[in-house]
């Protein structure tokens, strides 16, 4: 042990240097983790995983289609189109948005219209919901389909040619979180409405039902174009 004693100072010095290097290396390694190339790689790998998942589902769908007979395919397609047309009652996760006129006391001389819900407010909400990926929407149990109008009808609004007065209950099926976030966005629809005291509550629900469209789709003027005979 005697030889070690004389080298004590040297050993201690070297160990200090070693410690400094350890600390610096530790910090450098941490820096690497937060650099852009590293994050980019992680980002890309995540995208790859997602793409792979999509590919797998597509493959499965293709196999299903190949396995099923023509009849089954047609029934399935018909079901899909019936759902798209609103002829089927649908259910799934989504949000319920209740909107009511402002209960705030009006200041004298102010336009009372500002405190009421209008068709364009409703349109904005509905538009936002469609944009957020809603798959089916109804207003006061009236299913919105292609050609459903939302327009001003005196103190009420007209949806599918029926009159509805506030409070309005909008139901939308889709990813509840996305739908809720799309409405609650800063500077979004709900914030603008609430500025005037219009009451809007959003409830996310794991299961809501949206009734079917009770009318019929009529095509008086539009006719399908035959493939190949376009000229």
């Amino acid at each position: 042990m005697g030889a070690l004693k004389q080298g004590r100072a040297a050993l201690a010095f070297v160990c200090v240097v070693l410690g400094i290097m350890l600390a610096v290396q530790f910090r450098t390694t941490q820096d690497i983790r937060s650099t852009i190339p590293f994050q980019r790689a992680e980002d890309l790998s995540q995208r790859l995983r997602q793409a792979e998942k999509e590919r797998d589902t597509a493959l499965r769908q293709m196999q299903e289609m190949q396995n099923s007979t023509l009849d089954e395919t047609i029934t399935k397609e018909a079901e899909l189109f019936r759902m798209a047309a609103g002829y089927l009652q649908v259910q799934g996760p989504g949000v319920t948005v209740t909107i009511d006129d402002s209960k705030r006391a009006m200041k004298p001389g102010e336009n009372p219209n500002l405190y009421l819900i209008h068709d364009d407010d409703m349109l904005k909400v509905i538009n936002e919901l469609w944009a957020a990926g809603a798959e089916a929407i109804s207003i006061n149990d009236q299913r919105l389909v292609i050609g459903s109008e939302i327009r001003c009808a005196g103190p009420t609004i007209s949806v599918n040619n029926g009159r509805y007065s506030p409070p309005y209950e909008i139901r939308a099926i889709g990813d509840p979180k996305t739908l809720e976030a799309s409405l609650k966005m800063r500077g979004g629809v709900i914030e603008t409405l609430q500025f005037w005291g219009i009451q809007a509550t959003i409830k996310t629900q794991p299961l809501i039902k949206i009734s079917a469209y009770k009318g019929t789709h009529k095509y008086q003027f539009a006719k399908p174009v035959q493939e190949g005979a376009q000229k």
């Binding site: 070297v14 160990c15 410690g19 600390a23």
Partner: peptide, 26 residues
């Protein structure tokens, strides 16, 4: 104990003084 103490002191010094290597030289 001396080498261990010295290493700890070195780590403390390294952490106290924010010297960082460029990532390429890691």
């Amino acid at each position: 104990t001396l080498p261990i103490l010295a290493v700890l002191a070195g780590i403390a010094i390294g952490l106290l003084f924010p010297v960082s290597m460029p990532v390429e030289y890691g």
